[in-house]
């Protein structure tokens, strides 16, 4: 099965950029442009407070892009692979894992931009830490699990793809990608002041709790601690790592079970 996932995922990656003049460079353009725009706007707010802010931002962005790509890819996969799903019996999970592999290739190459940026800033990121493979595993389990939960119903409810796009827009701002992982940063204080009177304090409390404990925030925060701030902030504790990995595995197991169950109904839902 791994061989099939490897081959199908790699072929999908090659096919995606075949014939295009800029080819694979297109996939680098999106995070690069996002980085430039956000950095230009936010550096005046938080740039001084966060050490190596360009790297902090870029790392957050590429993990976010990975998440957005995998979940979108899982939802769109059933539409793109309609022909083969209708005609050939094989475990549909192969196609989901192939999406994960294709986007992992893209993620690795996005990491290259991050390394170039780190080199330009004379910073040595700890990419070879013993914790890095665990982070990758957590990302894959969490992203694929979420993708499968969404994909399982994406044929029955075709607007899931659009709804998820909107959810991602909101989630992007509720994830500490460009601001500090705490609501006590100047940006959040400023936002809180601006919204004073419009939002009750309980709503701010809920928002605060959501941003702090939503899995993507924790994952991005852990990634930064390992790759950028292992010397100053220290890597996550073993207990924290074990609990979060168990949570990611739970999401993955739930996604796999639901997707496998629903996959028998895909043919009649086209």
């Amino acid at each position: 099965m791994l061989r099939i996932v490897w081959a199908v995922g790699w072929a999908d990656f090659v096919l995606k950029y075949r014939g295009s003049f800029f080819g694979y460079l297109w996939s680098l353009a999106l995070p690069a442009m996002k980085f430039l725009v956000i950095f230009h706007v936010f550096r005046s707010f938080v740039g001084g407070e966060i050490e190596n802010y360009p790297l902090y931002l870029m790392l957050g962005l590429i993990v976010w892009e990975y998440f957005a790509r995998v979940t979108h890819g899982c939802i769109a996969m059933l539409r793109h692979k309609e022909g083969v799903i209708q005609k050939v019996p094989f475990p549909r999970l192969i196609l989901i894992f192939a999406v994960g592999w294709t986007d992992t290739i893209v993620f690795f190459t996005h990491c290259l931009i991050f390394l170039v940026l780190a080199w330009m800033m004379h910073v040595s990121p700890a990419l070879l830490s013993f914790y890095t493979p665990l982070l990758l595993l957590q990302m894959l389990l969490l992203f694929l699990g979420t993708g499968m939960l969404l994909s399982a119903y994406s044929l029955r409810f075709r607007d899931i793809e659009h709804i998820w796009s909107m959810v991602l827009q909101v989630l992007f701002w509720l994830t500490p990608i460009m601001y500090l992982y705490t609501l006590h940063s100047p940006l959040s204080r400023q936002a809180k002041d601006m919204a004073a009177g419009n939002l009750p304090s309980t709503a701010w409390g809920l928002l605060d709790t959501f941003i702090t404990f939503q899995p993507l925030s924790i994952l991005i925060h852990d990634t930064r601690r390992v790759v950028l701030y292992s010397q100053t902030a220290g890597v996550p504790s073993a207990v924290h790592a074990a609990i979060f990995t168990a949570f990611c595995f739970l999401v993955f197991a739930a996604g796999t079970a639901l997707f496998r169950y629903r996959s028998t109904y895909f043919l009649q839902e086209y």
Partner: peptide, 15 residues
Amino acid sequence: MACFFGLGLGFHPER
């Protein structure tokens, strides 16, 4: 098992 349902086997048009 191998099967042939109607036209084609779900080939990808771009490949």
